[in-house]
Structures are given as C-alpha cells and as structure tokens.
Design a protein around this nucleic acid. Structure first.
Lengths: 234, 234
DNA sequence: CGATCTGTTGAATTTGCTCAAACAGAGTGG
DNA sequence: CCACTCTGTTTGAGCAAATTCAACAGATCG
C-alpha cells in the first residue's frame, strides 16, 4: 500500500512538512476510489476515517428531518474532508457523494490524535482549514441574508469557477457534472429559479448551459452582476 | 494583575487543565470591561488580542460593502472569542459589540502559539470550539435554505433561551437587551417582519415583548412551531 | 424504444419586503 | 414636572421576487 509522496506534496496542508514525517503519515494511508454518484460516507455514520481528496469532486450534503436537502460544501482536490474526529465528533455530520469519479486517501480516525501529537504543524494547518471553512460558511450566511437569489447564484458560480474552473477557448468550464438542482441546493433556492436565471444569463451571453454542464463565457460580467449594489443591471 | 483561577474553572475550555497550567495562562491575562454599546474590536483591525467572556453578552457583527449588517454570532459567558490568530488570520473578521455591560479576559495574540505548544489540551479544545461554531453556521445555513421566516425566528429564539435564558415565575427571560432589529439580523429578515411575528406570538400567548426585552412564556409551544413540518400550526 | 432524469417555461400564488405613518417609552433638559 | 427628542416598535397597504403548480421537451440509459 505504497502512496507516493509526490501525490500530496503540493497540498497546502502538507507543504511545510518534512519528508520523513510525510512518509510516516502516508504509510498509514489507504487509497480509495469512488465512482460518480457513490457515497463515501453517510450522515450519522461513525466517523471511522478521515480523507484527503486527490482527484475528482465531492458534494457534502445534509438532509433535514422533513427530507429537504442542502449542499453544505463542495470538496475539491487537495481538500481534507470527513475529519469530524478532529472536531471531537464521533459521527459524520453530512453525506459525501462523488459528483465525478474521485480518488482519495483515507486514514483511520484513531490515528488523528497521534498524528497531531507528533506533527505539530498538522494541528496548525488543520485549525487553519477549519477556520477557512468557518469563514466560508459566514460568507454564505451573509449572502443569504442580504442578497437576492440572482446575486447569490452569481457568487456561487464564481466560486466554482475559482475552485473547479478549467480554461477552454470559449470560456471557463466547471470541471464536473453539476445540475441546476445542485446549484439550487447551494444557494437556498429552487431548481426552477436557477433554470430561469441561467436562461436569462445565456441570453445575455454570460454563460452557456447544458445538461449537468456549465461554461462561463464572461467572468467579468458575472462578477459585475454579483457585486452590483442592487438594480443596476438592465 | 491577579486573575483568580475560580473565575474560569467552570469554563469547558479549561476544566481539564492542571492548576499550574491554568495559573500560568492566567498570569498573562488582563481583565477588561466593556460597557453596553461599546466595541471590543472592529472588523478589519489587526487581531492583537484574543478573549474569554466572563460576564455579559456580545454581538459579533459583519457589515457588507453596501452597508447592510448581520449578526454573525452572539457571545455568551464562557465563550472564547476574537481568536482569529488561531485560524492564522491577522485581522478580526467581524466587530464585537457589548449587548450588555460585559467583563472579559484578554491575552496578547502573540502568546497563542506558545500556549498551544505547552498546553496540548488547549489546541484540542480550541479545535472543538471552532468545530462547534462551524456546525452552528451550517445549521443556520440549513435553516435559511429550507425554512420560512417564522420558523427561523422561532429557532433563533429557542437558541437564545438555551444560551441566555433566565428562569422567572412567568417564563424564561432572555437575559440581555435585544431588539427586533437584532433578531432580524440573526435570521436574515427585516425588523418589520420580526415585529409582526412577535405580535402574532404574543396574541397566542407564546411570548411577551417589550422594548429590547423578550420573555418566552411557552417554550414547548415555540418548539412545536419551530419543528412543525410546514402548515400545521393554526 | 419506452422509461427516467434533467431542464425549460408559463401561470397562479404567496411570502416577505418596501414604503409610509404613527405610536410608546426612556431619557434629557428646562 | 412637563415638553421634547430619540430610539425602538407597531401596523397597514401595495408590490415584487421567488415559490409552487403544471405541462412539456430533450437526453440518456437500460
């Protein structure tokens, strides 16, 4: 079960780590594949492992008691996920679903404390990661409190461009299959509204849609829309 | 600048800590008072200190570029706050305002790394705290995505009851001055809507309002309303 | 090739916001 | 003590954004 150092060397979480420490860490890692649509772990399950995404994209979802679903966050390559254990939780707070075929490393949760103990920089990095995640959550709360749907959708798409954008001749492609429903669940609206918004944007030449596909043609225009202080876009 | 151990002994963050460690920690602490309405720190300021609230209540707010305000969270006694430094940030992401006269301990941010190094349990506790905060943020996102305003307000009030409730003969009093505007900023709505909701609740005998005052008469009824799966309350 | 999934679009409806006006209570100063 | 002001609260009316309802079209897949 050899995992090569170069696979994770570029990950911010590990870039300050000495080679031998990194090797010791990787010695306990198991690599795992998740085909598109499969679940890596489920909400409520005991958190037996924590993960690092190497390739692909995951959606972390939560289901409410009355069956409604939201996407808590999207996991991109290089992101640590499922580390409930570090936050002193015994179960996963959400369900991780592969949005595209994905590859990840998995460590047994039991090992976390000893890792942190022996590799202090890991604790610092982990703390930083959680801190960023908290900030993202606050950003989302702020947007949901103060912005109308169209601007929220614009912000969400721009974040996707940033995290999962692939440059093409005609624009920037979101690099994994994503539906209107998904975007609705990320912005707190309905797929109907998202569909209408995308149709309007398409008419304006900002984006180009398609079944589970999204190509952003005019990032600047979209950003202008996202930052516009109410009613200037006409 | 002596700070007594007993002041903080009950705080979860410190309850597993040895006496001598705690004393070493407290040796560097400075106590500080914030009269009602005063700011403890401002959004964007360099994060020179981190704090522990001993007494009172604070609101942490963020202002959007176009001037709108939201309340990111409410700080209650025993909560650590303003520890941006632990998350590797150099400035405060929000503004902390005293909702009531408050007393807190302050430590220079510089000391955080050495504290964490010498007191490993502090790192674990801090991580846990941030984790809980992240979960709260996700709960709020979930509520804002899936629930109508009335239920969100109900949930918010119930959280206040839990964190800042004071038992009285007639019901449970929220133990610090809080306005409709505040609750609007916590739930992502307007003070008008909150006022209307409270008026309706008052008519039903669930709560009793007043200028910056809130007395919850029927916690169970409120909880029923908060958990009702759409349109059953009539 | 039917069945299913995703997306589109119109129409009716509703929620909650904006605008507007008035009111209540606490504190202030004459 | 009373008029005045400030701040927070209440309430109505109209309106707009977004949801719900509904029907359909095009892809995709077994």
């Amino acid at each position: 079960m050899k995992v090569d150092r170069s696979l994770v060397r570029h990950v911010p979480l590990f870039d300050k780590m000495a080679d031998d420490q990194l090797d010791r860490l990787l010695a306990h890692a198991v690599s795992r594949r998740a085909p598109q649509g499969s679940q890596v772990f489920k909400q409520g399950q005991p958190a037996r492992s924590f993960y690092l995404l190497l390739h692909g994209h995951l959606k972390v979802m939560q289901v409410t008691s009355d069956g409604q679903q939201i996407i808590v966050r999207v996991v991109h390559p290089g992101d640590l996920f499922g580390f409930a254990i570090a936050l002193q939780r015994s179960d996963y707070p959400g369900t991780a679903v592969a949005a595209a075929d994905s590859v990840m490393l998995a460590w047994p949760s039991d090992l976390w404390p000893s890792f942190v103990e022996h590799i202090p920089s890991l604790a610092v990095s982990a703390m930083q990661t959680v801190g960023q995640r908290l900030e993202e959550a606050h950003t989302r709360i702020r947007e949901m409190s103060t912005e109308e749907v169209e601007r929220r959708v614009a912000h969400t798409v721009l974040r996707l461009v940033d995290k999962a954008g692939l440059h093409e001749k005609r624009g920037i492609r979101i690099n994994f299959p994503i539906s209107r429903q998904d975007i609705a669940e990320m912005t707190g609206t309905t797929l109907h509204t998202v569909s209408r918004i995308f149709s309007a944007w398409e008419a304006k030449g900002l984006v180009e849609g398609g079944r589970q596909k999204l190509l952003v043609l005019d990032v600047v225009g979209l950003a202008a829309l996202a930052d516009s202080t109410r009613r200037e876009t006409d």
